[in-house]
Every structure is written in structure tokens, then in C-alpha cells.
Amino acid sequence: MARNRSSNTLVVQQARAALDQMKYEVAQELGIQIPQDGYYGNMATRDTGAIGGHITRRLIQIAEQQLSGGIRR
């Protein structure tokens, strides 16, 4: 069985493409270049943390909107 480089496993495997897309969108918004080869070892921890933090904020916002019936405030 092939292992993913990340120790994180998705509960909903079909969400992988959407999460990857979000990662690239957030990185672009922050002006951070994601390595084409997928190796993050040469990136600054600050940059990878910023991407992860922004993704988390977006996911929380999406969940809050769904829980509230989709009403934005």
C-alpha cells in the first residue's frame, strides 16, 4: 500500500482535490510560491504555517455558514 507523504489522512477522500485547490489559491493570495515538485522541505516554516492557518480559517468559515443555513453576516 502506497503511503501519502503526510501523516494526515482525510476522512472524506473525495475532498483532496478541493483542499489542494484551496492550498494553491491561498498560497497565491499570500504571494507564496508552492514548489512544483511537491517537496516543502525548502520552504520557510512561516510560509507553510501561513498557508495552513488561512486554510483552517476558510474551512471554519465554510462550516459556520453551513451550520447557520448559509446565511452570511
Rank of each mutant, 00 (worst) to 15 (best):
T56I: 06
A15E: 14
L10C: 04
Q33R: 06
R58G: 04
M22D: 08
G41T: 06
A15M: 10
G31Q: 06
Q65P: 04
T48L: 10
A15I: 03
S68A: 15
I51L: 03
A2C: 08
P35E: 07
G69E: 13
D47G: 06
H54Q: 15
V11K: 15
R5M: 04
G70H: 00
V12P: 01
Q65N: 13
K23N: 02
R46P: 04
G38T: 04
V26D: 09
E64I: 10
G38A: 04
G31C: 04
L10W: 00
R72S: 11
L59Q: 04
Q65I: 08
G49N: 15
Q65D: 12
I32N: 07
Y24N: 13
S6C: 07
T45Y: 11
L10I: 01
Y39V: 12
L59C: 04
I34P: 01
I55Q: 15
I55Y: 05
R5Q: 08
T9E: 13
D20M: 02
L19D: 03
G70R: 04
N4Q: 12
D20Y: 05
I32W: 07
R5F: 01
A27M: 03
I34E: 06
A2N: 09
D47T: 02
R3D: 10
D20V: 06
R73S: 12
T45G: 10
M1A: 10
G69Q: 08
N42W: 04
A15V: 06
Q66N: 13
Q28P: 03
R5I: 01
Y24D: 15
K23T: 14
N4C: 08
E25R: 09
I34V: 14
I34N: 06
T48A: 12
G41V: 00
R73W: 07
G69R: 07
L59V: 00
D37C: 02
T48V: 14
I71V: 15
S6A: 09
R16G: 00
G53A: 11
G38H: 00
N8Q: 12
L30A: 13
N8H: 08
Q21M: 08
N42G: 15
Q66H: 10
A50G: 02
D37R: 00
G41A: 14
N4Y: 10
Q66E: 14
R46E: 14
T48Q: 11
E25W: 01
Y39A: 11
Q14A: 15
V12G: 05
V26Q: 08
L19Y: 05
Q33C: 01
R73D: 14
A2I: 08
Q21W: 06
A18N: 13
I32Y: 07
M22S: 08
R58C: 07
K23A: 14
Y40R: 03
D37G: 02
R46I: 09
A50V: 05
A50E: 12
G49M: 13
E29S: 11
Q21V: 00
Q65A: 15
L59K: 00
E64W: 07
T9K: 10
T45S: 13
I32M: 08
Q61A: 15
K23S: 09
V12R: 09
S68G: 15
R72T: 09
A2W: 06
A63E: 05
S7Y: 05
A63W: 01
G49H: 09
G49W: 03
N4M: 11
A17C: 08
R3P: 00
N8V: 14
P35T: 00
Q36I: 05
R72F: 07
L59G: 03
I51K: 03
G38D: 01
V26S: 10
I71Q: 13
E25P: 02
M1D: 09
L59Y: 02
V11R: 14
A44E: 14
